[in-house]
Design a protein around this nucleic acid. Structure first.
Length: 557
RNA sequence: UGGGGUGUAGCCAAGCGGUAAGGCAGCGGGUUUUGAUCCCGUCAUGCGAAGGUUCGAAUCCUUCCACCCCAGCCA
């Protein structure tokens, strides 16, 4: 289905009709992360949505840090977030924005609410406030401080701002309705006292606005037309609208909600991801097993594959769980089309070719990609000793096994057909070497005797190759829903999620692989030269994803 | 017993009163010097359930059921 045939999602339909009806002249969206952690695949969905909408409808999308809580936020995260959004391929409109740069305006607007009798300073502590708030089914009751005069409220607010009260001693609240069915409307908190310095504003403030008192106003200031957030904020929409209606804001943005992404076998909660990092279950936010943008990048996922995935899953208000196989399909599809091919032997088994001169060697050529003539050919060296994968040889096997078997033939990919004569074993009976013969004139030709090999395997010259480390990654969790119900996600960490293989042999051209470059190691999968500083000076390849393996299904039957 | 939201195949998802798109996964087959890719075929008499309106309902109405979110001075 072409792009123009693809049906519009509900937000695209909405924007299209808003544009046609003249409700807005130009669509402006925003991606508003809080800089309290690294971006993950769920954020990628939001990024693709917000930036994608702007692109599709010729609008603009801002990057805005929703930095209203200095206790949790750090500069490290704002830098990482900027890098990740850029890496995904999007450009925000102008400079990045910060909620904190509007703090003066927010304060003026708080004063405005106080002056219009719509906000008051409340002395209830957190516990008391909870009691007064009521429950989901019972109305709350008015705070005893609800009826302070505007003058008194103003004086107290100024003292809060001046740092004259301790944290938690007072808050500024909107005066709405303590019996409202929507708890967000029961006199929500606008400002709290936090005597902490902020990564952007330093020590200028000791009171900070809450999300509710900030978000819609940020949108209004920036001229956001469609403020898109996840479903759990739908309950906040009436409050969002209340502020827009009761404040002298320069525009009237509208909030819309969509269903956040859930992926099976994956945890996407910043808190839990942070725990995995802090407690060393993984090697940092960019560990290739992490569902973070940084993790996928290090793993070898391409920006295009992540964008494709986000397009595939769609945007709706239904909260479902997407099969991680969809993400895997997206990256396989991209890499199959674009990654240059190479050969690598993960578990080397030496094969000595007894009828090939021991002092001879030759250079063979192989296509860079079976379907892409634009990718350069590569040169493979060949000699009388090659490595093949230990899994590709058996002393005996049934007809389904299409690799090297004693007395049988196999094609060495891009090279000759060989026939195995003998398996050499050590004292424990382990096969340590195979002796085989090259079948004459089979480079590019079938055997002249008509006995064709059943299969093709990869190999590497044992005398001229590149040696490196390979890290095989698998899903981080063994359970499809590791954080559902009362489960503890840490109980389901896959102990085999990282298998490190030393002394893997790849064709010699791989020595020139650039950090971050991805190859298909034929018959194995896609592998990315690690680009992390953690492995600087070493040659390490991370497995992005294996090839689809129908043999595994046959074998496991 | 409150408020908000959602139910279309194993999963994601079109559908907007005219007779169930597409993708992922699966299954069967073909091509192949990658057990990959690619190609072909297959996969909902059924749209949470029951009633109703209509010539005609996944779409409209009624009732019911299930699931998700909300009682941070987090976002």
């Amino acid at each position: 289905m072409s792009a123009e045939e693809k049906p519009l999602n509900f937000l695209e339909q909405l924007i299209k009709s808003d544009l046609e009806a003249g409700v807005v002249e130009k669509v402006v969206t925003r991606f508003p992360p809080e800089p309290n952690g690294y971006l993950h695949i769920g954020h990628a969905k939001s990024i693709c949505l917000n930036f994608g909408l702007a692109l599709k409808f010729n609008g603009a999308c801002n990057l805005r840090f929703d930095d209203t809580n200095p206790a949790k936020e750090e500069m490290e995260y704002v830098e990482a977030i900027k890098q990740d959004v850029s890496w995904l391929g999007f450009s925000w409109d102008g400079e990045e924005r910060y909620a904190s740069s509007y703090f003066d305006t927010f304060y003026e607007w708080a004063v405005h609410l106080v002056n219009t009798g719509k906000a008051y300073v409340c002395d209830l502590n957190a516990e008391q406030a909870r009691e007064y708030r009521g429950t989901l089914t019972e109305a709350g009751k008015n705070s005893p401080f609800r009826d302070r005069s505007a003058a008194e409220n103003l004086e107290l607010l100024e003292k809060m701002k001046a740092g004259e009260f301790e944290e938690g001693a007072k808050v500024l609240r909107a005066k709405i309705d303590m019996s409202h069915g929507n708890i967000n409307m029961r006199d929500p908190i606008l400002y709290r006292i936090r005597k902490q310095s902020h990564h952007q504003t330093g020590d200028k403030w000791c009171i900070y606005p809450t999300y509710d008192f900030a978000h819609g106003q940020e949108d209004a200031i920036e001229g956001i037309t469609h403020s898109i957030c996840t479903l759990e904020f739908a309950d906040h929409r009436p409050l969002y609208e209340w502020f827009i209606a009761n404040l002298p804001v320069p525009a009237k943005p509208r909030q819309y909600e969509f269903g956040r992404l859930n992926l099976n076998y994956t945890v996407t909660s910043k808190r839990k991801l942070k725990q995995l990092v802090d407690e060393n279950y993984v090697d940092g936010w960019d560990d290739p097993r992490m569902p973070t943008i940084a993790g996928y990048r290090r793993r070898g996922y391409t920006p295009a594959s992540i964008r494709k995935f986000c397009e595939m899953i769609g945007v709706t208000k239904a909260d479902g769980v997407v099969d991680v196989a969809m993400l895997e399909h997206a990256i396989r599809d991209d890499l199959d089309k674009n990654a240059p091919r190479a050969m690598c032997v993960l578990r080397p088994l030496k094969v000595v070719l007894t009828n090939y001169a021991a002092d001879k060697s030759e250079n063979l050529t192989a296509p860079g990609h079976p379907q892409r003539e634009d990718l350069p050919e590569r040169t493979l060296s060949f000699s009388n000793e090659v490595y093949i994968d230990a899994d590709d040889f058996r002393e005996e096997a049934n007809k389904k096994y299409k690799r090297l078997v004693l007395g049988k033939r196999v094609r060495l990919r891009n090279a000759y057909v060989i026939e195995a004569d003998e398996a050499i074993k050590d004292d424990n009976g382990n096969i340590i070497e195979v002796r085989a013969r090259v079948i004459e004139n089979t480079l590019g030709n079938k055997p002249e005797d008509g006995i064709n090999p059943k299969g093709v395997i990869q190999w590497v010259d044992a005398k001229d190759n590149t040696e490196f480390e390979v890290r095989l990654y698998d899903r981080l969790f063994t359970d499809a829903a590791p954080d559902s119900g009362d489960k503890n996600f840490l109980d389901f960490i896959n102990s085999d999620s990282l298998v490190t293989l030393q002394k893997c042999y790849g064709e010699k051209g791989l020595a020139a692989a650039a950090p971050g470059e991805v190859f298909q190691f034929e018959r194995e999968g896609y592998f990315c030269r690690d680009a992390s500083e953690k492995t600087a000076g070493q040659c390490v390849f991370n497995r992005t994803i294996g090839l689809k393996d129908s043999w595994a299904k046959i074998e496991n039957k």
